[in-house]
Write a protein that binds this DNA or RNA. Sequence first.
DNA 1: CGCCCTTTTGACTGGTGTCAAGCTAAGTGG
DNA 2: CCACTTAGCTTGACACCAGTCAAAAGGGCG
Lengths: 244, 244
Amino acid sequence: MIILFYSMQNIFKTLRSKSYSVPCELCSISSLCIPRLLNNNLGNILDRKMPYAKDEILVTANIPFTKFYIIHSGALKTFVTTSDNYQQINGLYLPGDIVGLDSISTKKYNNNIQALSNTLVCELYYDELMSLIDTQKNVRDMIFNLLSSDIYNYQKLVLCYSQKKADERLATFIYSLYRRYEQKGHSSLNIKLMMNRADIANYLGLTIETVSRNLTKLQEQNILSAKGKHIFIKDLNALMNLGN
Amino acid sequence: MIILFYSMQNIFKTLRSKSYSVPCELCSISSLCIPRLLNNNLGNILDRKMPYAKDEILVTANIPFTKFYIIHSGALKTFVTTSDNYQQINGLYLPGDIVGLDSISTKKYNNNIQALSNTLVCELYYDELMSLIDTQKNVRDMIFNLLSSDIYNYQKLVLCYSQKKADERLATFIYSLYRRYEQKGHSSLNIKLMMNRADIANYLGLTIETVSRNLTKLQEQNILSAKGKHIFIKDLNALMNLGN
DNA sequence: CGCCCTTTTGACTGGTGTCAAGCTAAGTGG
DNA sequence: CCACTTAGCTTGACACCAGTCAAAAGGGCG
């Protein structure tokens, strides 16, 4: 609790200096923002733009499921912890993404949710959202699409893992980041990684060393250049083809 | 389980030669059957129990999405084909399972769907199901649960792939088959694999040889015995622990 | 019984993990 | 402003697991 309080203070301080009260009209995810799509219908359903500090835990696994988290800015990761206290990441989320869809069936959070950086999230209560579905057909369709496309994305992720080698996984990962930013209207060959090498390696089922070695390899092949968390894609086609 | 399967095969044989009118009361998946749950509401929405022969293609990828496939008996696999004509399986489905949830968002079938054995499926049209959702709250909740649990299952599959070694993947796979049959009311340590080694290997991201070697290894460890497509689990706890 | 397809087993190679050391960059305190 | 500290990242040497190629064994079906 003390720790939580401390980090809350931190984020308020950080955000204040950068004036965090961004109006939704200026929100980076603009037309893709689920809260905005719901805006006309929701009233008090949505607690908008809750701030979380880097590394802050939003949710610990197995607590009762009450609401989704929709990222306004920053990034989240979801992970499970195995019996031997090993942490396994199974999801990385960017602005515009919704977290918690898997919890509808289990009625509890299946994963821990943690902030990768200082992050603003909109919190959307499940029960109240459901009550909207009966009256608003567009809301219903939107939720179905979100669920279905999540399944589709996981199918693609499974393919990535089950067959691809380390360099192909890394290429797939970086290209998918590019595409996700592009879909949100940020089409740039410069990509800022929100997570460190350890998180990337963990997510891709590799080791830190292998990620590092293959990043070097991609640079030698003139496909991209990497400086810390900054990636510049030099050859988008080559990157795409490598990832298949 | 073997006995049950045998009788199912027998029934199927007789049905193929004569008619397919198996009463739902004899259906193996009984209370978990989605069509039955919808029975009171659906009328002509459901084409019940369409027969498909082993290896028959139900759906080729990219055709427009119209309906879900719910397995009555037998088994299906879904797969994509890469540019170099390589076939990658991304789903294996058993009686009671529903196939096609990922297509809601894309409005087309993302995968090919093929019968692993002679299979009876109930076909459920999406559009007409949707019209039920507005009036039937239990139907709505059921579909949400199906979608959500599919996401949850894929999350677990991703974990399996991203970190586990060959023997652990195989253990996870066999244990998950056991659990899936158990959830459908067939709690038996005897498991009949519907697919060949090549399909298992493909699905697990391994080679046939590695699957075979590790099956031998599991037998040497007295965890199970395997004869062709018949698996007998000798030590369920050991199997579960190995898969984590 | 014999053919063919599937599965198993063996020998070898290569990619990735492991362990260890060195490097870089950012933050801290003097 | 600079030396120090520390965490994160990179590079190297080696071992091991899984892929590849090859051959033998098993199983189903005419």
